[in-house]
Structure formats: C-alpha cells, structure tokens
C-alpha cells in the first residue's frame, strides 16, 4: 500500500472538479494502475463546495476515501478553507492564486497559480479551468503520464471542444513549468 497516492480536488459546484477527478483516475487506469474516485457534494447543483477524491495504486484499493492526501487542490476560497489543510507533510498543495491559504498548512510543496485567470484571459473560457488544473497537477506531480492524461481528456470532453481543451491543457503545463 506504500505506493498509494491520495488526491483531493475541490472547488465550487459547476467548476468541473469532479470531472477532473474522473479524468485523472481514467488516466491512471490507462497507465495500467488501479484507481478509484469518490465525491461529495451538497444539495446545490451550482456553488457550494464540492470535492472529488482520487486514489491511485498498483494494488487493490480497499478503503475508497482519502485519509491523508498526498496532494490537495482548490479553486475557490471556500473549498480551500474546507478541503486542503489535512495534506501530508510530505505532500503538495496547489491552489488558485486568488486564494488566501488557511493558516498552519504544512506541506513540502505549496503552489499558488493563476489558473482561473489563465482560463478567463489566455484560453478565453472560464469553464476550462478544470482542464488547466489537470495540466498544472500533472505537470507538477507527474502522477499520471502526459500521454494518458491527454487521451483521458479527449475521451471525456464533448465533441468539437478538442482544440479548446488542448489549449487549456498546454496552458496548465506551461503554468507548471514556470513555477518549478
């Protein structure tokens, strides 16, 4: 179980973080690993705080929920306040740069990157912030291969949005590279 990776993606309902979690898990499966994805959400379809959890392992995954995440990610302040602080001391925290980090977070790496701004201004559609996020996460942590990630994204997104999502993914990688 030592190779098990536990990730948590959070944001506001409608930002596509659950989809991002699914894509990440599907990419891990393309890498011949096991993966499990769970989520929790409130009664609201939009807004609120939602989270997607992904566990990736070479072995069978029994307990399906994340206990001590190796990585936490948040796109909104509300989600950050709720879902990122229990990260492993050896782990990674990635948040949008609009977020003020909750006090007392201990992690090996902490990144604040302009994900939403890049979606809005560079790619031109805020809705692809989740795909930029995937580029950032994979660019920084290499938890899945870029090849599998791209294939997983292309398999999930609506037809006709390939170029847009490809741009978003590349933007994510770029943000990751700049902050290394």
């Amino acid at each position: 179980m030592s190779d098990q990776l536990e990730l948590r993606l959070s944001g506001s309902g409608g930002q596509g973080l659950i989809t991002a979690g699914i894509i990440l898990a599907e990419a891990a499966i393309r890498d011949q690993k096991n993966a499990i994805q769970t989520q929790s959400y409130g009664p609201e379809a939009r807004g609120g705080a939602s989270k997607a959890e992904v566990i990736i392992s070479n072995e069978a995954i029994d307990f399906p929920k994340v206990t001590i995440p190796n990585m936490t990610f948040a796109l909104t302040q509300v989600a950050a306040n709720k879902y990122i602080s229990d990260v492993s001391e050896e782990g990674t925290v990635i948040v949008d740069d609009s977020i003020e980090l909750p006090e007392g977070i201990v992690a090996k790496h902490i990144y604040k990157l302009p994900i939403i701004e890049a979606a809005r201004n560079d790619v031109g559609k805020e809705i692809v912030a989740n795909i930029i996020a995937l580029g950032v996460i994979v660019g920084l942590t290499k938890i899945v291969t870029e090849e599998s990630l791209e294939a997983a994204i292309m398999a999930r997104i609506p037809k006709g949005t390939e170029t847009l999502n490809q741009m978003a993914l590349q933007k994510g990688y770029e943000l990751a590279n700049q902050s290394k």
């Binding site: 699914i22 096991n34 993966a35 769970t38 399906p64």
Partner: peptide, 8 residues
C-alpha cells in the same frame, strides 16, 4: 458508497 464511487 458503492453507488457513486467510480472504479475500473
């Protein structure tokens, strides 16, 4: 748990 969880 099993209803909403995704697995291979």
């Amino acid at each position: 748990i099993t209803g909403h969880m995704r697995e291979k």
